[in-house]
Amino acid sequence: MPEATLVEAINLALARAMEDDPDVVVLGEDVGVNGGVFRATAGLQKRFGPERVLDTPLAELLISGLCVGMAAQGLKPVGEIQFMGFIYPCLDQLVNHASRLRNRTQGRLTCPMVLRTPHGAGIRAPEHHSESTEAMLAHIPGLRVVMPSSPERAYGLLLAAISDADPVVFLEPTRLYRAAKGEVEDNGEPLPLDRAFVLRQGRDLTLVSWGAMVKEAMAAADALSADGIAAEVIDLATLKPYDERTILNSVAKTGRCVIVHEAARTGGFGAEIAATIAERGLSSLLAPVIRVTGYDTVIPMARLEQYYMPSVERIVTAARKTCQFS
């Protein structure tokens, strides 16, 4: 199987979707000739033409609103927001329209759109380029929120997102765009949008994460295994609707859980998972659930960002503490 980086996998999925379905259109800033600032759309305009791969004016609200209008007409728009820090003008469209057009019209109009955006810190980017505000989006009924953590899952999940009948926000871990490499078969096979992936089996502890942090969680599991602690690592992959079953099953087995996310702690998606475990998995818990997260600060710029993001060390410390609890 050919190797691809995560961003190449995104590109492969977009090309495959456009090839298979003439209703798929790609739109955003610089997505045409330039192929997107991260090159996720490289070569698409040349292949599919400027009508299906269009450079929009510099207006994020517009991009999301265009997607709603196009989708209502039966197209399958895939909009790109250059960085998550610029997605906020889209919230009006996501909350008031995309997520509820189907419900408002009782199924008469639907909104099969995808809004893609890079997510997270760690690339020494300028201010406002390192956001991880996924919990905001996961709070919106009617939306799906997806975040892959490997090229293979990026490919399959993006195909699924594009063919899904409802709006999907697709968050791409910027830090992994080129750092993550793996085998990707361009076979057009989607992955399920409502299932978490168990990346590593273990009986002592459950580590739940998503996006770029999955890499740290895996590294922490390696470090813990040296201590004889077998951590199970789960990539949540889809935050909305999220796969409670896989997490509860794992916690039923391990009795201990550490949730790792890059986003600030308060109101982060980790709180949702912890609450679910408290409600429905309490009897299997042997220790309190711990969250290892970004701090409740503004995400610092390049010089301090590494101190903000959960490190392997912080995860390992939390995991040991959980395992020592009795």
């Binding site: 009508e51 609200l61 999301s64 609103g65 997607c67 209008g69 196009m70 039966g74 329209h97």
Partner: peptide, 16 residues
């Protein structure tokens, strides 16, 4: 006013 971008999206689809 939030329907205005939808109109642009609809019109784009019609033109496409």
């Amino acid at each position: 006013g939030s329907q205005a971008p939808h109109a642009a999206g609809v019109a784009y689809a019609l033109k496409l």
